[in-house]
Amino acid sequence: MSFAELGKAVRKQFFYKFKLFFGLFYSLVITQAIAIVFSFNGTGSISSGQIGQIHFYSADIVLVFTFGWAFISALQLTTKPFRDNEYLFVFNRLSSHLSNLLFLLALSFIGGLSAYLSGYLLKVAVYMFFDFQLIGTNDITSPAVVVAGIITIVLYIWMFASLGYMVGSLVQFQKVFAILIPSIIIGCLILVALSESEAIIRIGKFYFFESSFLLVFIKTTATVCLCFLISAVSTNHLEVRK
């Protein structure tokens, strides 16, 4: 198998996947629409008798929901019906993983860009249809920060997608993960809720409080690579169209 052959197969599969998983764009629109509705009350608000209420608007909720969408969609890519469709034509596991990696990046790009733009949709809707006194905006004025921010959104979504992909692959590898992983996630959430577990908050801060773009880039892409490596190893012996 030459490198060129692999590249050709990956390219073909990449475009095929867009046709195959077009339904993902449907759920993207629905997910973001729901998140926008949730955002109408403001991502945060403060109030007092003297100033009334102040709502702070941003598309944070849309972003978080898009993370979830990416996670679920990537997980679904690994499930049997999706995989069977994928493996109809020319493939091997390596080309399949590589094309999935790229496909998820493309999905993240679309999801991230629309999540970013949905912030404007939210704000324009609030401006036009809500009887609120608008105090002002806090727009980012530096183009470098805007570019870095958009890339970061895409990277975060890609990271969640590859996490979902890894979880799905592990479940395909050993069914026990289907019970294990949700238990771990829910357990962690409860832990955070009950004791504000330091370790988990530190993980969150590690990714989302990083103020250096370079470090964000390194941290997320390293996570993506790790997830795909684990996925590739765990599904290397997986048989298809059982």
Partner: peptide, 23 residues
């Protein structure tokens, strides 16, 4: 198994050969 070359040069057809429903 896992050969791209064989995959490109062979095809397996059965009655459970399901294609994506929206194509």
């Amino acid at each position: 198994f896992n050969s791209l070359y064989v995959s490109e040069n062979s095809i397996y057809i059965d009655d459970a050969f399901h294609f994506p429903s929206h194509l």
